[in-house]
Nucleic acid binder design. Structure first.
Length: 88
DNA sequence: CATTTGACGCCAA
DNA sequence: TTTGGCGCCAAAT
């Protein structure tokens, strides 16, 4: 156990996003905060954009305003998924 | 190593 | 309410 951080920021982002339960949403700033960088909201988006993975519920990460935000497969798709899960 | 980019967030007009 | 602009951070080039 050793070190405080052997994982890159992107790995932490995935770890956090993967844990978001169905029907629940987190804002980019909230995810960034859990990753140890409370101001890295943009960086979170950058990671999810370049490393999207079908088994990661990245559609559950939305703007702090409560708006859906962007999505690799279209913001419309993202909103649809959120409604389907009951997050909206 | 320096610069650019971008799925953000917040405030002023 | 909508638009524009600045700040912030990490990944990508």
């Amino acid at each position: 156990m050793g070190k405080k951080n052997d994982y890159s920021f992107c790995e932490r982002v995935f770890a956090v996003v993967r844990k978001i339960p169905k029907g629940k949403t987190l804002s980019y700033v909230a995810v960034a905060r859990r990753c140890g960088s409370p101001r890295a909201a943009r960086a979170v988006g950058a990671v999810l954009r370049t490393n999207y993975n079908p088994m990661i519920p990245c559609h559950r990460v939305i703007y702090a305003d409560g708006t859906s935000g962007g999505y690799n497969r279209g913001s419309i798709r993202k909103r649809c998924l959120l409604i389907r899960e009951g997050a909206l």
